[in-house]
Computed example of a mutant assay.
Amino acid sequence: MKAPSSHETAFRDAASADPLREAFLRRSMDTITRIAAHADLKILSEALAASTGFGALARVLADAATAEASLVDLDPLAPLVARNAEHRVQILEAAGGTLSSTEVAQQLGVSRQAIEKRRRANTLLAVRMGGDWRYPRCQFDEAKGTVVAGLPKLLDVFAKAGPWVAMDFLLAPDDALGGETPMQRLRREGLTPELERLARIEQGDGFA
């Protein structure tokens, strides 16, 4: 008899731990099976190029052809939600991943409470993931053990828009910066009037 794979074992362990987890796993697996049966092989191949399993799933869910074949009748909003999820995965990859509050505290040489205080004050960029706060790695100068100079003031421009909008701005190449991202320019030159102006224009609070 073939021994169960690690994925099968993990599935059984998770399912047996809690009825709610079992229900979620079975419902999710049914949907994934349906997608795999209908999706074009090219779409599946492109999805497998993602660096994570979550990214692969988001890509195939976001594809319109796949959605038309197997998802729209189940949930018309699924492709839109998946495209948003895929975009967030791409942003986090561009950010170099994330750090926990404990890792950030060690990086900056302060307490976790100090990190939480700075997050609430919007002087550190943090996103909610899995019930916890994660801190995009790109905002730190790890060699110096500091936050990239000028970032806290720039984050203030995006206080109402939220961290995902701020990261989208910081990590997207901009023609006005010669194809550099605002984060690249911020790391090299600090917060220049040009960068602050671009951020305010992005938020509709400035003039071209």
Results as ranks from 00 to 15, higher is better:
R197C: 09
T52P: 04
A166C: 01
G131I: 02
L48V: 06
I35E: 06
M167L: 08
M183R: 01
R88N: 06
G204F: 02
D168A: 12
I32L: 14
D132N: 11
E103V: 02
A85P: 01
D18R: 13
T98H: 01
G131N: 07
F24W: 15
R119G: 05
E142Y: 09
A3Y: 06
Q139P: 00
F11H: 15
H7Y: 15
V127T: 02
I32N: 15
E189Y: 11
A78C: 05
L177N: 05
T66A: 14
D205C: 15
A23T: 09
G179K: 10
A37G: 13
D205S: 15
E103Y: 05
H38A: 15
K42C: 14
A82F: 01
A94C: 06
R118Y: 04
R137L: 03
G131H: 03
D40G: 13
R120D: 07
A143L: 08
P136N: 05
T31H: 15
E180C: 06
A159L: 09
T146D: 04
A161G: 03
L99H: 06
V127P: 00
R12K: 14
F207P: 10
T66E: 12
D156F: 08
L154R: 03
V165T: 11
F24H: 15
G179C: 13
T33I: 12
H87R: 11
L25G: 06
R59T: 10
L151Y: 00
G178R: 04
E202D: 12
A85D: 02
A149Q: 11
M183I: 01
A208D: 14
G178K: 03
L99E: 07
E196W: 07
R34D: 07
L71D: 00
V110Y: 02
E194K: 15
V110T: 08
S5F: 04
R118E: 07
A56V: 03
D132S: 11
D156I: 10
